[in-house]
């Protein structure tokens, strides 16, 4: 019972944050509602027994990535988003189509799939087991991600550094 109540509270936080992200017109408001979504998702991960993923979610996503977003919003002095008129056909056909499609998916998931309930903490995911998997079974992908992160760092530095043409002129 408590599990269900906690699930509903965190799910409400997730959906409210996601809808608020769409509704807000200033990027900094959208960024802060995305932080709410990520914090609530960390709660959902804890309910599913994934402590390691919950901690990483808070540290990497809500911490590092969102701070990067807020930095860029401040750096570029992003103002209120200006709206451009969209196509009327897309609105008339897209909104009913999306509603019908999502209702179908929800009905299929809730009614037609006899999935048993997930018990709270049914899967103990201690960091030791995750570390064993990560450095034993998934060692090659783990090392490849280190190269990916290295390339991303170099790419970010190259892309964000100012163009070097001014040096030649002076």
């Amino acid at each position: 019972m408590l599990h269900l109540v906690l699930f509903l509270v965190f799910a409400l936080g997730c959906v409210a944050g996601a809808v608020n992200l769409l509704a807000q017109r200033h990027p900094i408001d959208s960024a802060l509602s995305l932080v709410v979504v990520m914090g609530s998702l960390a709660g959902e991960y804890l309910l599913l027994g994934a402590e390691f993923v919950a901690a990483i979610q808070v540290i990497v996503y809500a911490g590092a990535i969102m701070v990067l977003f807020v930095f860029v919003i401040m750096l570029l002095n992003a103002g209120v988003e200006e709206r451009t008129p969209g196509s009327r056909v897309a609105l008339l056909l897209g909104v009913p189509g999306m509603l019908i499609g999502s209702a179908l998916v929800v009905w299929l998931l809730l009614e037609r799939s006899p999935t048993p309930a997930v018990a709270a903490g049914a899967l103990p995911g201690p960091p030791q087991t995750i570390a064993w998997l990560l450095f034993h079974d998934y060692l090659l992908p783990f090392e490849v991600t280190s190269i990916l992160v290295l390339i991303a760092i170099m790419g970010a530095v190259v892309l964000a550094s100012p163009p070097a043409t001014t040096k030649k002129e002076s």
């Binding site: 599990h3 269900l4 309910l47 998931l109 799939s113 999935t115």
Partner: peptide, 15 residues
């Protein structure tokens, strides 16, 4: 106890 489908619906909503 929360069914798996509830998590999937939430995941689909976020997506």
């Amino acid at each position: 106890m929360v069914p798996l489908s509830c998590y999937l619906v939430l995941s689909g909503t976020l997506f």
